[in-house]
Nucleic acid binder design. Structure first.
Lengths: 122, 122
DNA sequence: CAGGATCCCGCCTGATACTG
DNA sequence: CAGTATCAGGCGGGATCCTG
């Protein structure tokens, strides 16, 4: 019994959908926050600029469903909910951080390339 | 003169947009194809299942504008166009392949987690 | 072969309002 | 505090048809 040959280049392979999920804008940034430790709902919302409550909830639910994030409710008043990367979820930190890192180290280069492209078109 | 502090967690930072671009479904898969060498338009379309001509064109234009892909036209009949990763573009191979790799190595785990989640809801 | 032009629909987004 | 519900709006993206 070998593993199925997961192949995101095939549009019907489930791995295509998983690739979409983990490479989504909000997943990358939320995992980036959780990489530094467990966080509360509103903490994440505060640190990821422009993230609506709706998308935060939705993204967290997906990550939870996929076993990448755990959700802990502390029954106090008001309720406290903590989110934390699972063991599996932590394996996402490196590849996703690499993406963030690439962006910040290449932004200036890309910016220049864009200006050059505009000049060439003029 | 230090570099601007690019920060994708800020919704107004240009790096947010760049992160969106390079982490898009089609960018990841197209760069995955180009990582193996220069390819023609229709070769890429053939290898990335479900990729429409429209999105292929659009994604290639973005990559070109950002200086990550070069476009070479050979004026024959019919025309031949080759796309190739630039030196900058090649720095994308590692991080994006890491994403692909994560997906294929964790798909089975995630699949199980999804089944467990469904059971828990039942 | 390598696209450009159009149409159109679904999802993300962004407010707002409400609850335990 | 941590959500859920709903609704209007925009645009990303797919399908289709056409062209140098």
């Amino acid at each position: 019994m070998s593993e199925p040959a997961w192949n995101p280049y095939d549009r019907n392979c489930p791995s295509r959908g998983l690739l979409d999920r983990i490479s989504s804008r909000w997943t990358i940034l939320i995992v980036g926050v959780l990489a530094e430790g467990p966080s509360r709902f509103s903490d994440i919302a505060r640190r990821v600029d422009g993230l609506s409550e709706k998308m935060l909830t939705q993204t967290l639910r997906q990550l939870e469903e996929d076993g990448l994030v755990s959700r802990t409710v502390t029954p106090s008043v008001p309720v406290r909910v903590d989110y934390e990367l699972t063991t599996d979820g932590r394996t996402l930190i490196a590849p996703l951080h690499a993406l963030e890192d690439w962006v910040v180290t290449h932004m200036s280069q890309v910016d220049q390339a864009r200006h050059s492209a505009r000049e060439a078109r003029a």
